[in-house]
Design a protein around this nucleic acid. Structure first.
Lengths: 236, 236
DNA sequence: GCTTTGTCGCGTGTCGACAATCTTCTTGAC
DNA sequence: GTCAAGAAGATTGTCGACACGCGACAAAGC
């Protein structure tokens, strides 16, 4: 989603003032709105309206929406425009199956070829504990959790794994965020990551695969269960 | 890419005239040009030129290029435009690793839950033999081969697997097409699919996984080897 | 009362034009 | 001869306008 900022040859104390173009800023703004729940699934995203509200022309809005389409947050219907995608329970289940497939492969590669990634992973887990301690909101928890999983894909050394992960990460976040609270005790969120890190530290690839498959599987069940309850409530 | 035709309540003798918009046609045209080798990797794709040649404005061309970006055929650099992506050997290796991961998961699911997909797969293998017989060109072989693999992803029942497959299929095709001939005997192409179909028919998921992993692995090695030779020749 | 046809508003599809930006070529100094 | 700064050209980024298609409602026919 992001474009590479040009690396400065020398380190000056300047903030990298956003060289992102309009399109990226629009896209980011839209993602925030969708993830925050300000725009609900199924809602229509009329180019003209968005352009007017943001005080720019339709062209960049249109491109931003096309970008979001790739990350699965938004759906395009010919001659009708863009809509916030509404995911069925089975679609979410498929999503988690894909995550298991990708991340097990990634964690196996990481364990066998790149144990240097371990400190970064441990740091993320520590961060999760800290968030639980300070009683941070769901968004913070989810973001850090996804960063942990992204590090695993990144550490696999396979760019394609990372690419797929990034493509589905926003959708995964959205699925998680519609739930107010995943675990009753926020420390559980952090704890569930421990076995993965331990297995990697031990250099036991099979154990790491088992651990992450279990970890994602649990999350899957919780999310699916929640969607089921939600639908009941919605239909009643 | 295609849109569904609305079902008529009564059967009139009209065939559903193609509702593909300009963008889709432009995209298709560009894909053909790239896959056919008419436009080589690294080549710049200037919107204005394409628009002028196709006699339309830049807007639909731009959108078509954004579409191709998702399928990995084209790369976008801010303020510089679009380029036909040039893949390193390691990038291709990563691609095939991803295919193995996705398609093994898909073939496992298919074997266990959807043996009805078998006839379709057998038909594709038969088609491959026929192509070998008639001495068809590489494009025909590759297209049919990819259709076989797509059927496996489709038959898995997991929409996400199919989505990922479609996303990388054009890139895979391109990687295959730059090679004049993958096997010396064109029948080999067809034969290598047999063990997969046999394992599915036997209901042996583990064997099917093994078979397809081997199948893709062989293709991977051949492609990588070819790229190596190509680079040597290019550098010399 | 139900189905079909006409009308209308809204939003997308495409366009041509201008501004911002990058690339290349030219010019000049060392 | 090499390098740097600047000018010129080409290409992308953004814009506002207009034509077209869709969906909704009203009107007409059975």
């Amino acid at each position: 989603m992001h474009r590479e900022p040009s690396a400065l040859s020398e380190a000056y104390p300047f903030l990298p003032l956003s060289r992102d173009g309009l399109v990226d800023r629009v896209a980011h703004s839209l993602v925030s709105a969708i993830l925050s729940g300000a725009i609900r699934p199924g809602h229509r995203l009329a180019e003209s309206h968005i352009a007017r509200q943001m005080d720019l022309s339709r062209a960049p809005v249109r491109e931003a929406l096309r970008l979001l389409e790739n990350s699965g947050l938004v759906e395009y219907r010919a001659n009708r425009g863009f809509f916030v995608r509404v995911n069925s329970a089975s679609s979410i289940a498929d999503l988690y199956e894909l995550r298991i497939v990708i991340e097990t492969a990634a964690v196996r590669a990481l364990t066998l070829t790149n144990p240097q990634a371990l400190p970064g992973l441990r740091a993320k887990v520590a961060e999760l504990y800290q968030l639980a301690e300070t009683g941070a909101d769901m968004m913070a928890h989810v973001t850090t959790d996804m960063q942990f999983h992204r590090l695993i894909c990144e550490g696999s050394g396979n760019q394609r794994f990372l690419q797929v992960f990034d493509q589905i990460s926003n959708e995964t976040k959205l699925g998680l965020l519609v739930i107010g609270r995943l675990y009753d005790d926020p420390h559980r969120m952090a704890e569930t990551h421990e076995p993965i890190v331990d297995a990697i530290a031990a250099g036991d690839a099979d154990a790491a695969v088992q651990a992450i498959a279990y970890h994602i599987g649990v999350a899957k069940d919780l999310v699916i269960e929640h969607i089921g309850k939600q639908q009941e409530a919605g239909e009643a």
